[in-house]
Amino acid sequence: MGVLQTGVFIFPIHFIPPGAESFKSYGICNTSHFEEMNGAPVPDMHVFGYLLHTHLAGRGVRGVLYRNGEQGDEFLVECRYQTLDRTEITFGGLSTLNEMCLAFIFYYPRNNISSCMGYPNIQQVANELGQEASDAIEGMTAIDLVEWNNETIKKAEKACKEADQTVVIKTIDELVRNETGFIREIADNIQVPCKDISRTRIASQAKRNFEHQAFPPMTSKAHKIKGIFPLPTLLFIPLGFTWLFTSSM
């Protein structure tokens, strides 16, 4: 199996304005050059799990797959943040007080691509916010000069989504290639109400209680063998390992 890191490139170009009720960031992965960078044909990637990651301001993460486009398969990560308790811009970075927008995709069979992440043209974003910037460095500086309010927050979110995206693809042996991309529209899925199973659960529990009273518990040789962990001990063993793992971090 392999792990592919996707989302927004971890860099201060990723920013979240202060005082935002909701602010969305986007990172695109364009797979059209995977085979070229892999050095061999890349078989279909069968995804069987994922891990979504933000820091303290994160409120939601989702991933979207685009298929049969002209550029090949694309994977988009959208992160939603809230910064009502902050008065300064939150930039992307490794610190807990910085932010991330990542989705780690677990798949098989493994190839040589380790990460595929995107970030917006920060100069373009700064210009859309009315700031002068001739390159990325000036763009990052200019973002910090914006007077943030509900209007500029929404304007910044729109600018980040519509700006040209740079896609950074990296292999396990540190080969890096920059590609271009853009953020496509997301079609929201229709949310189906959860089914009320409370009555079914109560009836099932009543049935189990009746069977327990009607039929005495079965005995087995396992109860007579010394050294077998009783049920309460077996339940506490995973908790103990969880405690040790948490304490060691």
Rank of each mutant, 00 (worst) to 15 (best):
Ala126Asp: 07
Asn149Val: 01
Ile153Met: 05
Ala142Thr: 04
Ile137Ser: 14
Val146Gln: 07
Ala142Tyr: 02
Val146Gly: 03
Gly130Cys: 08
Gln123Val: 11
Glu151Asp: 08
Ile153Asp: 03
Gly139Val: 09
Thr152Gln: 01
Asp144Ile: 09
Glu128Val: 08
Asn149Tyr: 01
Glu138Val: 04
Asn149Met: 03
Lys154Thr: 03
Pro120Glu: 04
Gln131Asn: 12
Ile153Gln: 09
Ala133Gln: 12
Leu145Ser: 11
Gly139Glu: 01
Ala133Cys: 12
Ile153Cys: 03
Ala133Ser: 13
Gly130Glu: 07
Gly130Tyr: 01
Ser134Tyr: 13
Asn121Pro: 10
Asn150Pro: 00
Pro120Ile: 05
Glu132Ala: 13
Gln131Ile: 10
Glu128Ser: 13
Gly130Gln: 00
Ile122Val: 14
Leu129Val: 06
Ile143Val: 14
Asn127Trp: 11
Gly139His: 07
Asn127Glu: 14
Asn149Pro: 00
Asp135Pro: 04
Asp144His: 13
Val146Lys: 06
Val125Ala: 10
Ile143Asp: 10
Gln131Ser: 07
Ile153Phe: 09
Asn121Phe: 06
Val146Asn: 00
Glu147Lys: 13
Glu151Ser: 06
Met140Leu: 15
Ala156Glu: 10
Glu132Leu: 09
Leu129Phe: 02
Leu145Asp: 12
Lys155Met: 08
Ala133Val: 04
Lys154Leu: 13
Pro120Ser: 11
Ile122Trp: 05
Ile137Pro: 02
Ile122Leu: 14
Ala133Trp: 04
Thr141Met: 15
Asn150Gln: 12
Gln123Leu: 09
Ser134Thr: 14
Ala142Val: 08
Ala133Gly: 04
Ala142Gly: 04
Trp148Arg: 05
Met140Val: 15
Glu128Phe: 09
Ile153Thr: 08
Gln131Pro: 07
Gly139Gln: 08
Asp144Asn: 14
Ala142Leu: 05
Gln124Cys: 12
Asp135Arg: 04
Gln124Val: 07
Ala133Met: 09
Ile122Ala: 06
Lys155Pro: 02
Leu129Trp: 03
Pro120Cys: 05
Gln123Ile: 08
Leu129Arg: 05
Gln124Gly: 09
Asn149Ala: 01
Ile137Trp: 15
Asn149His: 07
Lys155Gly: 00
Val125Leu: 10
Met140Ile: 11
Lys154Pro: 00
Gly130Pro: 01
Leu145Gln: 13
Ala142Glu: 05
Val125Met: 02
Ile143His: 04
Asn150Met: 06
Ser134Arg: 13
Ile153Ser: 08
Leu129Thr: 02
Glu132Ile: 14
Ala142Gln: 05
Ala142Asp: 02
Ile137Lys: 15
Gly139Ile: 04
Met140Ala: 15
Glu132Val: 10
Ala126His: 00
Asp144Gly: 06
Val125Ser: 09
Thr141Ala: 15
Ala142Lys: 02
Val125Thr: 11
Gly139Pro: 08
Thr141Val: 11
Ala133Tyr: 02
Ala126Gln: 07
Ala136Val: 13
Glu151Lys: 00
Lys155Gln: 10
Asp144Glu: 15
Ile137Gly: 15
Asp135Cys: 12
Glu147Ile: 01
Trp148Gly: 02
Glu132Asp: 10
Ala136Gly: 12
Glu132Arg: 12
Ala156Lys: 02
Val125Lys: 00
Lys155His: 08
Glu138Arg: 10
